[in-house]
Amino acid sequence: MKRKLNINPLESESIYIFREVVAQFEKPVLLFSGGKDSITLVRLAQKAFYPAKIPFPLLHIDTGHNFPETIEFRDKLAKELGLELIVRQVQDNIDQGKVKEETGRYASRNMLQTETLLDAIEEYGFDACIGGARRDEEKARAKERIFSVRDDFGQWDEKNQRPEVFDMLNGKIELGQNVRVFPISNWTELDVWQYIKTEDIEIPSIYFAHERKTFIRDGMIWTANDVVVFREESEAVTTRQVRFRTVGDMSCTAAVISGATTIAKVVEEIQASTISERGARIDDKRSEGAMEQRKKQGYF
């Protein structure tokens, strides 16, 4: 019996993109958040270069507001795969007075990550930053290229993007510019979950149903962690069975009520869902163009 290969076209496209990155750039880095999308990227990178090791480091911009489960997972994964893990703290920039922390009810460190990221890119001289953004996530991301050129300030010039025809990727840049690379641009949320299921990829525990102390605000469920999440006295804390569909900061990622304790059940839940993934992200709800604004300033 002949072993006939039949690769999922999305997976094949992503592997092709990873190989182009390594061939076209001097110092690539994978922006690793500990979320399902960046975990999927790591698996795809393994596949792209097997049996060699992934030929670039992971970079995590730690806001200090991350879920502890994500941080633990991040460290474990890097260790298991023998990858270099670079962590930069948003807190350092706050301490040095370089950025000012938001205050009040919806305070979040989401915007502050940009500055820390740009500093790290400059410090290491990274010329390609690989991220797990997908076009189906958000309307500004739907316009993103696979190789997206950023200037010295990390800015995205959305009205003047290089055309990408067929699968030819043009990574030519000038000194000081860098390229953001999105290998899973064409995947949907469901594609990612199905891939995690088929490949049996380990993900942080917060993606599965668990008991958590939470409170309700604006109809959404927030983690009750008074160190990093602002909560008013009147907002009562209750233990609920929840899981997270997307993993950002505790201060901007809401949970969903769920009984899904296995990956198969998570996939079922996503298939039946009537709310989009980023519907649980308060950082996108600030205004109609919230993501576009952030992207122009150098956000992921």
């Binding site: 072993r3 006939k4 290969l5 094949s12 496209e13 592997i15 092709y16 190989r19």
Partner: peptide, 10 residues
């Protein structure tokens, strides 16, 4: 594998 097809990254 023994055979790869168009579109496969190998």
């Amino acid at each position: 594998y023994d055979i790869a097809n168009a579109g496969d990254s190998i």
